[in-house]
Design a protein around this nucleic acid. Structure first.
Lengths: 200, 200
DNA sequence: TTTTAAATACCAACTGGTTGGTATGTTAAT
DNA sequence: ATTAACATACCAACCAGTTGGTATTTAAAA
């Protein structure tokens, strides 16, 4: 165990922020959920904003890892770019299908809905995270388009964005419609769209 | 002018809430932006929560009207269900292309990112709003599927949801990527997907 | 190996500014 | 003269952050 208490505080804070937003989450609520004192909180974080910063860093790192893992998994399972891309999407689809209530949300989206409250540094991290997604997916889509030139013209940047859009939009929807398959079904439409675009 | 001050307060509150979230928006900030006194605020709204309720009602009503307008416009321009549906999407696409910074957001989404803070009544209104979208779009998609039976099996409920998902996801993305066409481009992909699904 | 000094990891009472909300007006129309 | 439409001064609860402490671990000196 490296630093149990700190991680404990961050976990408690993240789940509260996903439910109530950043400014809807008080430090008192965080320490209560984490079962630590106020002294402990301000021992590890110099301010509430500092916590926000630490959370965004951790989330970005974990997500980048996740993205890379799934891409490598997909590339190991096929040599064909289109198949790789389709498997890549299917992996997320399966993950989303596997999890149960409560439905997940995106920490970054919950930050962006309070964007005025955060400094440029945090917004910059979120921005780079988006560009990383777009870049990684777009690279793969370019391979696909080279191998299977589509009939109609396709803007690969926005097609890459569409995967993130699908996630974020489905997260919002799943907050209100109580159907566990919601997110996976939306990913499945993205999957179908890619097939229709690039298949003969 | 029916009730200038009240509308003024609601407009100020809505734009602040879209930027900072509900709990990130103080009553003092609202009355400052609206240029009214605290007495005026609590004359028209019994509490901050009451304001939230009024906002959600107004937003739901305006959006329902908007949805109906675009559907009727589309139905007036063609007799073919697929064309109607494609025009319907194109109308939103044009609207999104027409507007300039700052990019819009969805009041309901900003509420859902603070969902724990709101009572069941407000959440219920948001839920009904989603079901209305799904219902209205799904009805049209059923006409389309009857006229042009698709090759593959298509789940029309989630395909209807996909339009809302596209909006909500694109709103999130547009908060961080500074490209005005982002939202319209995503809608354009939905447009293409429908064409590919239902065209011979 | 024991003693000692210093840093770390907490705790819980407290503080001062902020917040949603109220009390007590004033003004103008009906 | 009553009511609607505000304005201003104020309050109590709440909030992020501070203070002054203690227990425990680490490190180095004796």
């Amino acid at each position: 165990m490296e630093n149990d208490t700190q991680t404990n505080i961050m976990d408690a804070a993240q789940s509260l922020i996903l439910d109530n937003g950043f400014s809807g989450t008080t430090v008192d609520a965080i320490i209560k959920r984490a079962g630590v004192s106020k002294g402990a909180f301000f021992h590890y974080f110099s301010s509430k904003a500092d916590l926000a910063h630490a959370l965004v860093m951790r989330y970005a790192e974990a997500d980048a890892q996740h993205l890379e893992n799934n891409m490598e998994k997909a590339e190991a399972l096929s040599d064909d770019p289109l198949q790789q891309m389709l498997i890549f999407v299917k992996l997320f689809e399966q993950e989303m299908n596997a999890l149960s209530e409560p439905y997940p949300g995106c920490l970054f989206a919950s930050y962006l809905y309070q964007s005025e409250l955060f400094d440029e540094q945090i917004l910059e991290i979120i921005h780079r995270w988006m560009l990383r997604w777009r870049g990684r997916v777009k690279d793969k889509l370019e391979e696909v388009a080279d191998t299977y030139p589509p009939d109609r013209e396709v803007d690969l940047s926005s097609l890459a964005d569409m995967l993130l859009v699908t996630f974020e939009g489905a997260f919002v929807l799943s907050q209100s419609v109580e159907e566990p398959e919601t997110i996976a079904r939306q990913l499945s439409h993205y999957h179908s769209y890619l097939q229709l675009l690039f298949n003969p």
